[in-house]
Design a protein around this nucleic acid. Structure first.
Length: 465
DNA sequence: ATGTCC
């Protein structure tokens, strides 16, 4: 019997499901037939209290009784927390998730960015301010997923005249794919940090080391392109520059941190109705909350180190100097003061846009991205989008597009694609210009970046070893 | 976005 079937019989998803599956296994061992089990589970769900002494169903019954009692005691808040959205025609699922997030008793306010789409718990592009607690799924699976751009002291013409040199640097200095790790590990000071702050980071330190400097999969990329400044800024004269841009996060270790603490958060909040369960939080003064906060911050340093390793290795490979470095997280939570109150601000796929704060908003492999300067708008909790946002699901994109038309699109724009999946093609993304236009009150554009040589994970790419 | 377990 599977979780889905148990759920249909009334067993709630979450920590109880594991216990239910265990009970089913024991019942089967004891010779119970499927039909008997189904009947018995329905009975346990209906009146758990009368089964707490049962040798097979007792543990499940007690746990269910506790969960149902907690759910019965739960009273939703009367007025949802205020929130505002940027951009029109946002995905209904994303808006629903934002509405739900503002029903949490711990939410103070929220904002939805113009690249929003549906995620686990909080939508991607969701910003949520809470009081004294952190929501693992409002930070996201890829904790501290971030952008880094390095402007290189290398002629823009290198992109055409010596493309193989650039291609070789990307090929040699980072790895793509789920589970990808270096045989010959990279070195970085982040390895000297305290990895014992959480059992998860302690357990995964070696994997994190192997994956240091790798890029992963999904929408992650490493690319060279042309940075164009219309005006003197960032310490650079107006003109065009060769720049390296990377997008990736905390790899397997960050995902493990998210998964572990999200489970603990769900256990701590069995009262939450189903549509809010992925938004379960940890109090910052609880042991789990303190551990998560420390682990999240370590993942912040680790993700920054990943980008640092990639950029350092590529720069060294090319033997060039760096003119400028810009970077920012977009999946993270910060302690910030808003309206005179210290809040925990979660930005899940949203760029920090405090007054004068620099950030990077990429478009797609074939469309421009922008270096932006935040305007510190409070209504957005000083945030902006983290990209163009998907126009359609990955499945839909794979069914709709083919490489021939993508190649034509990229050729027209002078983009060379080293590798990627069809689900990441530019046509699967919203128009970045429209997205930027809908958030011009949040950020000003400082410079434009046009990708020219792009590497992403191949479809279904697996690690070599 | 990640990588594993009934």
């Amino acid at each position: 019997m599977k979780a889905r079937e148990l759920n249909n019989l009334g067993v709630p998803k979450g920590p109880v499901m594991k216990i239910a599956l265990e009970a089913v296994k024991n019942a089967a061992k004891d010779g119970n037939k499927q039909a008997e089990m189904r009947e018995r589970i329905s009975a346990v769900v209906a009146t758990p209290d009368s089964f707490t002494a049962d040798p097979i169903w007792g543990t499940l019954a007690s746990k269910l009784a506790g969960v149902f009692e907690a759910q019965a005691r739960y009273i939703g808040r009367e007025d949802p927390a205020p929130w505002k959205q940027w951009g029109d025609g946002l995905e209904a699922g994303a808006v629903d998730q934002m509405v739900n997030a503002c029903k949490l008793p711990v939410t103070v306010s929220g904002a939805l960015m113009p690249d929003a789409h549906q995620g686990y718990g909080l939508p991607i592009g969701g910003v949520l301010a809470t009081k004294d607690c952190v929501i693992p799924y409002a930070v996201g699976v890829d904790i501290a997923c971030r952008m880094k751009m390095t402007v290189l002291d290398l002629p823009v013409e290198t992109l055409n005249k010596d493309q193989d040199r650039l291609r070789n640097a990307i090929e040699r200095e980072t790895l793509f794919g789920v589970g990808a790790g270096f045989r010959k590990k990279r070195e970085h000071d982040v390895l000297d940090a305290d990895w014992t702050v959480s059992p998860i980071t302690k357990l995964n330190r070696d994997k994190a080391w192997k994956q240091l400097g790798t890029s992963g999969s999904g929408n992650h990329f490493v690319e060279f392109g042309v940075l164009t400044l219309d005006h003197e800024d960032l310490g650079l004269e107006a003109g065009t520059y060769l720049a390296l841009l990377s997008h990736s996060g905390s790899r397997g270790t960050g995902a493990a941190v998210c998964s572990h603490y999200s489970s603990l958060a769900k256990e701590a909040h069995p009262e939450l109705p189903r549509e809010l369960s992925n938004l379960a939080w940890l109090d910052l003064d609880s042991e789990a909350g303190m551990e998560y906060w420390a682990a999240m911050n370590l993942m912040g340093e680790y993700a920054a180190a990943n980008h640092a390793c990639i950029h350092h290795a590529i720069k060294k490979n090319l033997s060039v100097d760096v003119l400028l470095d810009i970077e920012n997280h977009h999946n993270f939570a910060w302690k910030e003061t808003h309206g005179g109150e210290e809040l925990i601000v979660h930005r899940k796929g949203a760029t920090p846009a405090g007054d004068g704060v620099l950030g990077i908003i990429p478009g797609s492999m074939g469309t421009p991205g922008y270096i932006v300067r935040g305007k510190g708008v409070e209504a957005s909790l000083r945030s902006a989008s983290h990209g163009a946002g998907r126009r359609m699901s990955r499945t839909a994109a794979k069914a709709k597009f083919n490489w021939k038309e993508v190649k034509r699109f990229l050729d027209q724009r002078g983009v060379t694609l080293m590798s990627a999946g069809l689900d990441e093609v530019p046509m699967a993304y919203k128009d970045i210009e429209e997205v930027m236009a809908s958030q011009q009150d949040l950020v000003e554009s400082v410079a434009r970046f046009d990708p020219k040589l792009v590497k992403m994970a191949k479809a279904g790419e697996r690690p070599e070893d």
